[in-house]
């Protein structure tokens, strides 16, 4: 089984959306992260239209997108690029495919796991796990980011009265 191939229905849906694209490039023009991407948005869409979704699943692009919605807002056809990227990310995450840009991926995972467990985010657990998975410690901004999320994540689990229900959300 080739795991890097998207399910047919998702492929079909993406293809349908991309039929409208006339490659004007406005998505790339306004993308704040285009410089950091291996495939800027227009190229990314073109590759998908050409059926190269397995390449795109392992692209840096899907993890570098900051979901700022600029491309979606300005696209003449309202092609929802953030949604397409989210789909691909979700798929990679589910199949544990990509090793690129792991920290964000781990961040996403740990974040959700925490909510699952505590209803809100549990500080210690979150940071601990993140450390473990990402192995990314030393950059200054990163340390800052850790602090930021540390604050964000300090939890009062007791506030959630129905923790069972929260868990149910994730079943």
């Amino acid at each position: 089984m080739n795991e890097s191939i998207l399910p047919q229905e998702i492929k079909q849906e993406i293809k349908e959306t991309l039929k409208k694209c006339y490659a004007c490039g406005k998505c790339t023009s306004g993308c704040p992260m285009a410089a950091e991407m291996d495939f800027p948005p227009r190229e990314f869409l073109k590759m998908l239209a050409l059926g190269k979704e397995s390449d795109m699943l392992s692209s840096k692009t899907i993890w570098v997108c900051s979901s700022c919605q600029t491309c979606y807002s300005r696209c003449p056809f309202e092609i929802n690029i953030p949604e397409i990227i989210d789909r691909l990310k979700a798929y990679v995450y589910k199949r544990k495919l990509s090793n690129k840009e792991k920290p964000t991926q781990v961040l996403h995972k740990v974040f959700l796991d925490n909510i699952k467990r505590f209803g809100r985010i549990h500080e210690a657990g979150f940071i601990g796990e993140w450390k473990l998975f990402s192995g990314k410690w030393f950059s200054d901004l990163f340390l800052g980011a850790k602090m930021f999320f540390k604050g964000k994540l300090a939890i009062f689990p007791e506030k959630i009265k129905k923790i069972e229900e929260v868990r149910k959300l994730f079943k």
């Binding site: 704040p32 950091e36 900051s66 700022c68 964000t104 990314k136 901004l141 990163f142 930021f148």
Partner: peptide
Amino acid sequence: TECCGSFLTTFSEKGVEDC
């Protein structure tokens, strides 16, 4: 109204710094 780099702060310092 442009992006600050958002959660990319966790790994793409350069992207965020540029923003």
